Computed example of a mutant assay.
Amino acid sequence: MATEDRPGTGRDDRRPCAIALMGPTASGKTALALDWAERFDGEIVSVDSALVYCGLDIGAAKPDAAEQARARHHMLDLRAPWETYSAADFARDARTAIDGIVARGRLPILAGGTGLYFRALLEGLAGMPAADAEVRAAIEAEARARGWPALHGELAGVDPAAAARIDRNDPQRIQRALEVWRISGRPISAWQHDAAATRARLPLRVLKLVVAPADRAVLHERIARRFDAMLAAGFLDEVRALRALPALQAHPAPLDLPAIRAVGYRQAWEYLDGQGSAAAFRERGIAATRQLAKRQGTWLRGELDARRFDPAMQSAELERAIGDFLGRAATQGRPTRARVV
C-alpha cells in the first residue's frame, strides 16, 4: 500500500507533502523532477551518492547550469573527491535541506537512485557504531592485499544475512559491515534488526514513485546512448582533471575512494592507467552501468509501498497519481512536459 494510504496518513494528514522519485540510472528521473519542480513550486533534493562529490559532473550526469537554473537543487557538490560521505551524513544534511524547503512553503522532490540514502532519509538509520578511520584503513589494506571478494567471504562467516544481500564486488558495503563487526562484535544485520522499530522516520507525507521502462532492453539502450553522450561531452577529460588533483595523486589507493569507485569513473581511471583499449573501456563502462541498474532494480522491488510507472507508456497514470496526492487543484490544466530520453 502506498505511503499516503497507510492508516493515519490519508487526506486528514496535515504533515507537509513530499515526492520521492526513485528509479534506476537513465530512467528519466532528472527530466521528471525538473518538470514537477517548475509546475508544483518544488525544489529538488538529489538522492545520489555520486552527485555529492565535486568534479563528478559529466560521468555522474549531474544537473548542468541550465538545469540548476530551472529549479533549486540540494545535495550537490558537498565533498571533495578524496573525502568520504556516509548515509548518516546524507540523512542529516538532506533533512536540513528539506526543513528549509518546507519552511519556504515549497514541495520537496527527492530524486535519485541510491537506495541506502533513501532508506536513511525516509526511515532513519539504526543506531550502530560510528565509522572508525583506523578500522577502515585496516580493512582497505586487507582488500588491496586479498581482494574484496575474499573479504566478502569473511563477512559471510560472521554475518551470513548481510553477506547474502551485499554483492561480493560492493566494497563500500562490505567495508561497513566488517567495520561494524570488528568494532562491536555484533553483526550489522543484528543492529539493523534491533533498531528497525525505533528509527526516526522523515516527518512528511511521502508519495513514493518508481519510474523505469517496462522493457529492460529499452533501459539498456538508453544507458549505452547516454554513456556515448558522456564520452562526446568530455568525460575522459573530466577524469584526467581528477587524476591531476594533488590530493588524489598523493592518495595510496585512489580506486578505493567512494568517488572514484563510482560507476564509469573506475573504468575510466583504469583505462587512463593503460588497462585495455578505448573500445574495451566503453564496453566495461556500459556493462558496469547496466549492473548498477540491475542492483537498483533489486532494491526497488523491495520498496513495496512505492507505485511503479513506465513514464513513456504511463504518463497519464503517473499524472493521476500525483494529482490524487497533491490534490487536483494543484495539477489541473498542467500536463507533464518532461521528455524521457
Score class of each variant (00 low, 15 high):
R15E: 11
E38I: 00
F40D: 07
K29Y: 02
I19F: 13
K29A: 02
G28M: 04
E38M: 14
L32V: 11
A26F: 00
A31N: 00
A18L: 08
E43A: 14
D13Y: 12
I44A: 05
G28W: 02
R11L: 13
V45L: 15
A18Q: 05
V45C: 14
G42M: 03
D41F: 04
L34K: 00
L21A: 09
T30P: 00
A26H: 07
G23N: 13
I44G: 05
A26K: 03
D13G: 08
A20K: 02
I19L: 15
T30W: 02
L21R: 06
L32T: 06
I44K: 06
I44W: 07
A37C: 14
V45E: 12
D35K: 02
P24N: 12
L21K: 02
E43Q: 15
P16W: 08
D35N: 13
L21T: 07
A20S: 14
W36V: 01
V45A: 11
R11P: 03
P16V: 09
R15M: 11
T30Y: 00
G23I: 04
R15D: 07
I44N: 05
A20L: 06
R11D: 10
D41C: 13
G28A: 11
A18E: 11
P24T: 07
V45P: 12
M22R: 10
D13S: 13
M22Y: 05
P16Q: 10
A18R: 06
A26D: 12
T25Q: 10
G10V: 06
A31H: 02
D12G: 08
S27P: 11
G42C: 12
R14H: 11
